[in-house]
Computed example of a mutant assay.
Amino acid sequence: MAEASAHPVRRIDALKEIARDYDAIVCDVWGVVHNGVSKFASAEDALTSARHDGVKVVLLTNSPRPHDGVIDQLDAMGFDRNAYDHVVTSGDATRDLIQKGEGAIFHLGPKRDLDVFKDLGVDLVPLEEASRIVATGLFDDENETPDDYRDLLRDLRERELTMICANPDIVVHRGERLIYCAGSIAREYGSLGGKVAFAGKPHRPIYELARETMGLGEDADAGILAIGDGMPTDIRGANAFGVDALFITRGIHGDELNAGDPSAESVTRLLDQNGLAARYFMPALK
């Protein structure tokens, strides 16, 4: 397992410098291969090149939607399917958690996420009839913030309902804006003493599902590289799962680093402050 270190993280200029050192790559999606509006062509080229070199590539995302919906979104952006072998989502892991539980469900999130319940045979009911909650996001993430949910979350806590969080991300970029995700709601609920079950990064189930999808055994972790821009999700998840991490710094932590091309010392300092480690960093995947 990776640990925080005083040694500076290594800057690389291109993924091809290190890709052949690994059997597989698990790569974040939002913030690394697209910004919610358009794809990053340099990331597409980098992952395609890695696959040509024999490296398996799984796109690992905290999207609350099943993988088919994410693939459709990537197709709509023109992201080449030759850049990846598989997509594994927090929505896929959420479906597993839903099936393992019992009781009617209140869906906290936008209607576009309803695919997560498809063919599961579960009852979606009004809040007052629910025995559990599945949070996939804010109802209106363009205009709402977690503050708008304080009264609702207090009511849920009083009823001692368990919340399944389908997307542990706190925020993501949508174009140039930061949008709140289900993780922000789950964080508030947890702070009230509510019980939360997390499906996606940085929690282990989604990584185990990715490894299984790639057909790799449990002893293959040393041959996996995790790529991502989120310290609480991508980097913490890589550290907990015991795999090397490539930190993309021009993502959601760009303002904290206060530079488009930060030094290795400043990146190392930020990681250390959060008790995290990454073996490599680069501003954007290419």
Rank of each mutant, 00 (worst) to 15 (best):
H67I: 05
D68Y: 08
D68M: 00
D68G: 04
D68C: 03
G69C: 10
G69D: 15
V70Q: 12
V70C: 09
V70H: 09
V70E: 14
V70F: 11
D72S: 14
D72K: 15
Q73F: 15
Q73C: 03
Q73G: 08
L74F: 12
A76P: 01
A76D: 13
M77F: 15
G78C: 10
G78R: 00
G78Q: 08
G78L: 09
G78S: 09
F79M: 05
F79L: 03
F79W: 07
F79T: 04
D80S: 15
D80Y: 00
D80E: 07
D80G: 02
D80T: 00
D80L: 01
D80P: 03
R81I: 04
R81C: 01
R81D: 04
N82M: 06
N82A: 14
N82G: 10
N82L: 09
A83F: 04
A83P: 01
A83K: 00
D85C: 04
D85K: 02
D85A: 05
H86R: 12
H86L: 08
V88S: 01
V88L: 01
T89I: 03
S90H: 04
S90C: 01
S90N: 06
S90I: 02
S90T: 02
G91K: 05
A93E: 09
A93K: 05
A93D: 05
A93V: 05
A93N: 06
T94S: 10
T94G: 03
T94P: 06
R95W: 01
R95M: 11
D96W: 04
D96G: 03
D96Q: 15
L97Q: 15
L97A: 15
L97K: 14
I98M: 15
I98S: 04
I98C: 04
Q99I: 07
Q99W: 02
Q99P: 00
Q99T: 14
K100D: 14
K100V: 06
K100Y: 03
K100E: 15
G101C: 07
G101K: 08
E102G: 06
E102Q: 13
E102R: 11
E102V: 13
G103S: 12
G103V: 08
A104C: 10
A104N: 13
A104F: 06
I105K: 10
F106W: 15
F106V: 02
F106E: 07
H107F: 10
H107L: 10
H107P: 11
H107C: 09
L108D: 07
L108Q: 09
L108I: 02
G109M: 07
G109R: 06
G109I: 08
P110Y: 05
P110S: 13
K111S: 11
K111R: 10
R112I: 11
D113Q: 00
D113W: 02
L114V: 15
D115S: 14
D115V: 05
V116Y: 02
V116I: 14
F117T: 06
K118I: 07
K118G: 00
K118N: 13
